[in-house]
Write a protein that binds this DNA or RNA. Sequence first.
DNA 1: CGTTTCATAATTAGTTATGAAACGGTGCACTAAT
Length: 588
Amino acid sequence: MGATFRTASARAVRERAMGLEGPRTGQGGAARLREIAADVFGWDTLLPEQLTAMEWVLAGEDTLVVMPTGSGKSAVYQVPALMLSGPVVVVSPLLALQRDQIAGLPDGDRAPGAVAVNSDLGAARTEAAWEAVRRGDAGFMYLSPEQLAKDEVVERLAAVRPALFVVDEAQCVSSWGHDFRPDYLRLEQAVRRVGRPPVLALTATAAPPVRKEITERLGMRRPRLMVTGFDRPNITLEVRRFLDEDDRRRALVERAATEPKPGIVYAATRKDSEFYAAELASLGLAAEGYHAGLRATERARIHDAFLSGAADVVVATSAFGMGIDKEDVRFVLHASLPGSLDAYYQEIGRCGRDGRRALAVLHYRAQDTGMQTYFAARGAGRDTLSEVADAVHDRRGDPAGLDELRQETGLSGNRVTAAVNLLEEVDAVATGDEGEIHPAPGVSPGQAAEQAAQAAQAHRRSDKSRVEMARAYAETTGCRRRFLLGYFGEEYAASCGNCDTCDEEGDEEGAEKGHGEPTAHPAAATYPVGTEVRHEQWGEGTVLSEDRDRITVLFDHAGYHTLSLEALATRDGLLTVLRRPGQDRSAT
DNA sequence: CGTTTCATAATTAGTTATGAAACGGTGCACTAAT
């Protein structure tokens, strides 16, 4: 992606080479890391996964860490920071999260200071923050992707020569970068322009295609991957399907009222979050509705009430969750189908962090897919792409930055950025070292817009197929845990015995069969989870999960599809095996 | 894509039917008025 025009500056290459030599690598590293973790941060033990990832970071390797919340992801950059020769840039999506991270750092003399630069700061405090970084008083600088989209910020950052570029909550690159916060897809340019330090991406939830998108979109080179297990065996999984909307509402209210507290209910709309909160409050519960339409003070109040235990239930849209680190949440109920299993797993992962029993119930109606596909179907249109492609082309003699393109087209900043991202994805434009947008030689604006529109169409197809995967989870007759873990690339052969479908199987066929292996179609052995395949029509893809009689495949360009094993067995050549799981897949 | 809202019509004076239009989620940064 974008490889044709990527301009690697000589300085970036030289600095990268310097980062790889010296006394940082080797056996001494681990002992020193442990020492710093204990002396400065007060952590007496480091998990082997943490330590390994830290060593990669010290060795200057680009690294993607996928570890659950609460397992010490932040330590992976905080501890090595003391052994690096420059400041650490941390990209974080929410200002509240930046504040939490800074507040969580130790105070001691030996701990590096931290600053956040954002729109909350006045001019004087912004200057003070930069000065602290320049003097070396602040070892961490927290920024939003929008800050890094500004030329001034990038130039000042380049001058302080960051030693590491961290992207926290890196799933945002994939989930928000395409439309909502397009500056997430411009981080690769920012990394390059600040001198191309090593990149560390951190996330709690990322299915294999999301991991691929993160590493590609951030321009990570031969990325190291650290993934710990996804399974959360203490969370009971259940789906309840309804035909009637009123039935669903009653069932959800009853469930939220009767299950042990505290809990979170996720609703699809702001209106629903208020409806359910009012219903629960009328039953005498301390219930609060939460969504992005509330005033900041009100949101903070509810957030605090939930953390302190003053609120039993928060009924929220997807706005609630990031930064919620509460151990004793007993349930997460969904009042509607989520837009993807990535979102779903992230949301249900907020219960049962103390390891005790917790419950995740999805209340589903077939009509729910409507709104989710509506969300998935939006994106940059042909008109916008043409307009932006024309503007870039017109300025080919004197290439414009994003701000100028916004003025010249009269389009909003987000729309221009999203359009440029798509044009850049198809190599129709490229971003230079000053942030200026060059048209690719030999590509007409018409061709550029056409290719970008096709790329946008591909994203929409992919998003819609994610909705279909969420629906498939809701409708599967097999073990729900096996389905979910398969989606995240983890093989789980047995049935879990802790989801509604496993319970039913036990009821029908006797207890001894409840936890056993289901009888799979003989063709299942041909396509184990993780197999890379090629389909006659849909091209190349990866097997994600198996049910008794069918497999689900994620195709690189056609999204998720479910295939009947019977059909595969009878039609030779329909699905060819390219590579089996376990065969080495070299990083690129 | 599905649901809700609103205007209009048809019905006969308070209510209901119909069809078109609007709406639906996530945050930062920035500006302007207090």
